[in-house]
């Protein structure tokens, strides 16, 4: 089904892909369902009515559980998942490579180095990670590390313009350095600190609160429209630089803007929840196969990223209660078989 509906008003017209819209709507419905489940399930099971009354009644015992624990955590998950997936979709379109992910931009790997260094260093200095470091220091470290990582990749890849292919190759090189420095840092610390750092590296939503939701939501409010505005140039960019230039798109500014939004999206997401595995890589590929479009659709990718992360966190939080798994383990365990299923199904 590749039907497109023309949508015209005076002076403006869009082509709306029916299948894309259907996927987006079903995705949003699923997301709402998962959010509701996320509110209901946990150590204390609640009915939907209890959830609603708890949310509005400040004095009810459920209020704290819903408004301070479950809701901010679920929102962080959805927002971070959407941001990572959108960032992945942009990178895969620009690199024209399904294996590309924000790791290529040095964001997640750069953040991992600063955070692991922080955890290992603070472990050896104070004998344990202090509360302040966990709540404020780690997001800040991750943001700084992510942006430095991206700046290094971008700076090294720029050479009289930016070639998608060169960006990817430089990104691989820089990421390899960061990853191996991270491996090395993991070997020098105490094994308990290594464990703590591993939880963050895998991506975790444990004890995320409003202080994580607010900055992520603000950043997304700016960045998502910016990224969606670039869809048209992204559509063109996949034809290769020469063709695009001939089509009249100013290649470098368009690409620079898209890369910048991808960097900021994944940096903000990583700061809030760590580099949650596989969301950025798998969501665009899942969206691509569900909508049957020519390149990863941005909005659908973001919705699928949010669905995947929220579903994964629900499992991570409740499946092995009272042990909470890092969400990144579950995103891969849920996302990988689904992607495998889609690859399997696509055979003719």
């Amino acid at each position: 089904m590749t039907t497109t509906l023309p949508l015209r008003t005076r002076g403006l017209s869009w082509r709306v892909r029916v299948r894309g819209v259907a996927v987006a709507l079903i995705g949003l419905l699923l997301l709402a369902l998962l959010m509701a489940l996320n509110m209901r399930l946990g150590d204390i099971q609640m009915s939907l009515a209890e959830v609603v009354s708890g949310a509005f009644d400040v004095h009810s015992p459920a209020h704290f559980v819903i408004m301070e624990l479950r809701l901010p955590r679920a929102l962080t998950g959805a927002l971070v998942g959407a941001a990572l997936a959108l960032s992945g979709a942009i990178i895969q379109s620009i690199a024209r490579n399904p294996l590309a992910s924000p790791e290529i931009l040095g964001v997640t790997t750069g953040a991992s180095v600063t955070v692991v260094a922080g955890v290992v260093a603070s472990g050896s200095v104070t004998g344990g990670t202090s509360g302040l470091l966990t709540s404020l220091g780690i997001p800040a470290l991750a943001l700084v590390g992510g942006l430095i990582g991206a700046a290094v990749v971008y700076g090294l890849a720029w050479r009289r313009g930016l070639d998608g292919y060169r960006l990817v190759l430089v990104g691989i090189g820089v990421s390899a350095v960061f990853t191996n420095v991270k491996f090395w840092l993991l070997t020098i610390g105490d094994v308990t600190d290594t464990g703590r750092a591993m939880v963050w590296i895998t991506g975790s939503l444990n004890s995320r609160g409003w202080e994580h939701v607010t900055p992520t939501a603000l950043a997304l409010a700016v960045l998502v429209p910016l990224a969606l505005l670039g869809t048209r140039s992204l559509d063109a960019l996949r034809f290769g630089d020469d063709t695009v230039t001939a089509l009249g798109v100013r290649v470098n500014p368009a690409r620079a803007l898209m890369i910048l939004s991808a960097v900021l999206l994944s940096a903000v997401a990583t700061a809030a929840a760590g580099p949650i595995a596989f969301v950025a890589l798998a969501s665009p590929q899942i969206a691509l196969r569900l909508t049957r479009s020519a390149h990863p659709p941005l909005l659908c990718s973001a919705i699928i990223g949010a669905v995947l992360t929220t579903a994964a966190d629900l499992v991570a939080r409740t499946a092995f209660s009272p042990i909470e798994l890092p969400v990144g383990i579950v995103t891969a365990v849920l996302g990988a078989p689904y992607l495998i299923h889609l690859i399997w199904r696509s055979r003719k």
């Binding site: 094994v191 290594t194 464990g195 895998t202 890092p326 990144g328 383990i329 365990v333 990988a336 495998i340």
Partner: peptide, 29 residues
Amino acid sequence: LAGTAVSALLAALTSAVVLLDEQAMDVFR
């Protein structure tokens, strides 16, 4: 893509194992 998907799945399972067992983590790192 199949390679990346299977790798991601196995990497996640490996993280789960090493997070549960400190001795495995020590060998793994």
